[in-house]
């Protein structure tokens, strides 16, 4: 009985390992991976790549219905890392060696290329608010200061050359809510701020860009975070600041021989006009 169990397990393990040895087959279908509707990353990506179409009545997201929907950056990463035929897009701050970032129109996604505008697939990280309490204003000042922007420069692109930050340590509670892409950066900022001003407590809820903006409008949070441009309706009701720039990296499996895509090819892949890896 134990023997058969071991045989079974070894069989499954061998089967799982065996696929690693297979060569890349360019004739196979592209497994397009997208994010859920409402994700800031998806919103920015479809706008930048022309996947969003304007009609008389409004705008339409033309992402193919065959696209696999992954509900988080890590799910996209894991899916692409495990699937030789997958393509996906993630925040550049989350990029790691498990996957390969493609050049878009021949430009490598690096911080320099995003800062000087050569790499086109980039979007702003916004913070938005209605009115700021004294302590919330202090925190926003910190984010936009030299110290704050230095933390931003860890994985993202800072936006301002700012002065050094000093605080008179106001106390109070700040609720920050919104984009799941901005949250990791915001947590780092909060930790650094807490060292300078231990009197403030900051609560971060990662609930998505749209929810963050809505929370700021409705007053359920003090500061909203968005990983995309604000909509016109949101801009009307909120004061907003760009706190960082973030690239969107287009990623494929490390076994995939493709290194470069053009924006047109990317659009065609995501709209569903191109379905095979023999681009």
């Amino acid at each position: 009985m134990k023997k058969s169990l071991i045989v079974l397990l070894v069989g499954v393990l061998v089967a799982c390992v065996a696929r690693v040895g297979m060569a890349f087959d360019a004739g196979r279908d592209i497994n397009v991976i997208s994010r859920e509707a409402g994700s800031g990353t998806r919103g920015a990506f479809i706008e930048l790549m022309g996947i969003e179409a304007k009609t008389d009545e409004g705008t339409i997201d033309r992402t193919t219905v065959e696209a696999i929907i992954a509900n988080g950056t890590d799910v996209v990463l894991a899916s692409v890392a495990n699937n030789p035929y997958a393509i996906g897009y993630i925040s550049m701050g989350s990029l790691d060696e498990r996957v390969k970032a493609l050049k878009v129109d021949g430009v490598t996604p690096t911080q320099e290329n995003i800062a000087d505008g050569a790499y086109k697939v980039a979007r702003p990280f916004n913070i938005a608010y209605k009115e700021l309490s004294i302590v919330a204003q202090d925190f926003v000042d910190f984010i936009m200061s030299a110290q704050g922007q230095k933390i931003v420069s860890g994985s993202y692109i800072p936006v301002v050359e700012a002065e050094s930050f000093t605080t008179n340590r106001p106390s109070g509670r700040i609720v920050v809510a919104g984009s799941t892409s901005v949250s990791p950066l915001m947590e780092k900022l909060q930790e650094a701020y807490a060292k300078l001003n231990p009197n403030a407590t900051i609560e971060i809820q990662s609930s998505g860009s749209t929810a963050g903006m809505l929370g700021a409008i409705e007053g359920t949070c003090d500061i909203g975070m968005a990983s995309r441009e604000l909509s016109d309706a949101e801009k009307e009701q909120l004061t907003y600041l760009v706190m960082a720039q973030d690239g969107i990296a287009v990623i494929v499996n490390n076994d995939n021989p493709v290194d470069n895509v053009t924006s047109d090819q990317l659009r065609d892949i995501y709209v569903g006009d191109v379905t095979r890896w023999s681009l």
Partner: peptide, 8 residues
């Protein structure tokens, strides 16, 4: 932890 890709 798993949904933002830093801490698998």
């Amino acid at each position: 932890l798993s949904s933002e890709g830093f801490h698998t």
